[in-house]
């Protein structure tokens, strides 16, 4: 029987390798489980706030820090480009992969481009700032908005 941990690792390993969050079918093939079992596992992982789901729970929208859909927050690592869910997750991708990265985003007010180099010690010195509109107690009430 496939565990939720197997499913979680399959999701994250596939995403790390390709830059794309896998489908339920791809995860099922990877772990040798049925699509139905994998979708049930998606639901349990979402309940732990390790995934955010789409399409009635049958697809992954977020495997934080990775986004399954394009966003303004892109991260390049070793020639692979990833989409992050938000500014926090843009730094979360090099933190998760333990690899040097280029974070490409923008100032939300001015539109000025952000190009930030990140290595194992963190981002290059920068005066840019992070701002979150939603208080911590509300982040997962609507995680896509947050």
């Amino acid at each position: 029987m496939t565990s939720d941990t197997d499913v979680k690792l399959a999701i994250y390993q596939a995403t790390a390798a390709s830059g794309r969050v896998p489908t339920a079918d791809a995860v099922a093939a990877s772990v040798g489980a049925t699509r139905e079992d994998v979708i049930a596992s998606f639901g349990r992982l979402a309940a732990q706030r390790l995934l955010a789901l789409d399409r009635g729970g049958e697809a992954i929208r977020m495997a934080p820090p990775f986004s399954a859909v394009p966003t303004p927050h892109r991260v390049r690592v070793d020639g692979t480009e990833y989409f992050a869910n938000c500014a926090w997750d843009a730094l979360g991708i090099p933190a998760a992969l333990h690899r040097p990265a280029e974070v490409l985003s923008r100032c939300e007010q001015s539109g000025a481009p952000l190009e930030l180099s990140v290595d194992s010690s963190g981002p290059a010195p920068s005066t840019w700032l992070f701002h979150c509109q939603v208080p911590a107690a509300g982040w997962w009430k609507d995680i896509v908005f947050t």
Partner: peptide, 25 residues
């Protein structure tokens, strides 16, 4: 607002083990 060095520490704390079996929020 949060400085970039603070944000990096949040990122490492939240996601530094995310690709491991033991990871959790």
């Amino acid at each position: 607002s949060v400085r970039m060095d603070q944000l990096w520490q949040l990122a490492v704390t939240w996601y530094g083990t995310r690709l491991t079996a033991e990871s959790r929020r």
